[in-house]
Design a protein around this nucleic acid. Structure first.
Lengths: 231, 231
DNA sequence: TGCCCTTTGTTAATCGATTGATTAAGTATT
DNA sequence: AATACTTAATCAATCGATTAACAAAGGGCA
């Protein structure tokens, strides 16, 4: 009955805890994030998670209240650091719109591939047409980044850096869509690219810089070309 | 014990059946496709499907053997018409590579948005990292289209129509990724576009032509621009 | 036609397994 | 002693699947 939900926001108590316990909770969240992204929310069972984490099943309810609470906790841990990433770039008045966009792509490719299974986790659940309370929460998380890119595009269009007839919304779809396609459907993209995209060495050494270069070329060609001619 | 699996390939028997029975099976598949794409394979229950279809739960096992059999049957129905769509375009020797690509995009945008929930169904299940027997089947379905686009790109690159330093594989990721992003995450894309992307009238009248125009502009700018300069 | 019988279609009831969640009893720490 | 943590056992609910009983529809034969 007395469950320590408050410990998430009770700093004094948190300081008094030994590191082992903190790491244990974090370990559960790590495992949960992995399992959820591999099997989906419905496909993953609490027994699966507790078994993989090496803890008793009741611990999940003790710590997080419920399966849904655990699912939420996985997100809560990430959201904070997620929100401010691109905002600082957008607010920088010393950079041109193109430089901002270029930097956003760099940061985004870096970050998104690090948080690989977290991204899959989000998109898998947000694909559901039937809403539950979490859908809006996930939507809002992703929309922060969307709006940040949108503002940069607007800035570039209004000051003439980018083409006047840019389809801003669909450019956003291409930026996030291209990345999602590579990361979220590894079976497909591995076949396309001829390498295992889940291989970290290949990701860091080859694929990440390749995506960065490609995305910049693609966007530069589209945004900075006068293409109001035919078709 | 005697279940009519053979009836799927027994044409003489099929002809003898009255339309009501055929429509009933088809109706179950329609409902299953919808429910599976809304809730995912694990999130959808056989009771949900049978209830929505207005049939007894045992009918699903009678017709399709199991839940997985029903899931497979949903695909079997679509695969046949799926494979030959783009192949005819690629084989046409009277068209330039760009015209082929342009036509593929038109056809693809048309088709993919018609088979809306079927596409979501595929991608939701193919996102799972853990394989089951169906994963390879789904992968092969999608790779047919991927390879067809790939061949067209190769043709254009080799004959100089497209830029020599085109990143062919990532162009494919952009084509399919952009489309998937809009269709598979309707909550997000509806917010981005300011309209409900599940509204068929908006889709037909505005979004589909808009996507076609955008994709062609984007690809034309990238593929047909000498961009081997800086960065 | 009328009767028997196999096949096909359909239903309600129920199966064992697994789900998320809870309990009661315990240990450990302060 | 009080609080925080951990366990095994068990809960009701739901899962996919199966069963047995029955209805309907011919097919073969007289």
């Amino acid at each position: 009955m007395t469950r320590p939900f408050n410990r998430l926001i009770n700093f004094e108590q948190e300081k008094e805890m030994d590191k082992e316990k903190i790491d244990k909770k974090d370990h559960i969240l790590d495992v949960a994030e992995k399992i959820f992204s591999d099997y989906g929310y419905d496909g993953a069972s609490t027994r699966m998670i507790s078994g993989e984490a090496g803890v008793n099943m009741a611990m999940l309810n003790y710590y997080f209240g419920s399966k849904e609470g655990l699912f939420l906790a996985v997100f809560e841990r990430k959201i904070s650091s997620f929100q401010t990433l691109l905002q600082n770039i957008g607010a920088d008045i010393t950079m041109t719109a193109w430089d901002k966009l270029s930097l956003c792509i760099d940061k985004y490719v870096e970050r998104i591939i690090v948080n690989n299974c977290f991204q899959k986790l989000i998109h898998r659940e947000i694909m559901k047409t039937k809403r539950w309370e979490l859908t809006d929460k996930l939507t809002n998380i992703l929309m922060v980044n969307v709006r940040e890119i949108g503002k940069i595009l607007e800035e570039g269009i209004s000051n003439g850096t980018f083409s006047k007839d840019t389809d801003k919304e669909l450019v956003i779809a291409s930026i996030f869509g291209t990345k999602n396609y590579i990361i979220n459907t590894p079976h497909i993209s591995s076949l396309i690219l001829g390498h295992d995209v889940t291989d970290e060495k290949y990701l860091d050494d080859e694929l990440k810089p390749r995506i960065k270069t490609y995305m910049k070329k693609l966007l530069k060609a589209y945004l900075m070309t006068d293409n109001d001619n035919t078709k």
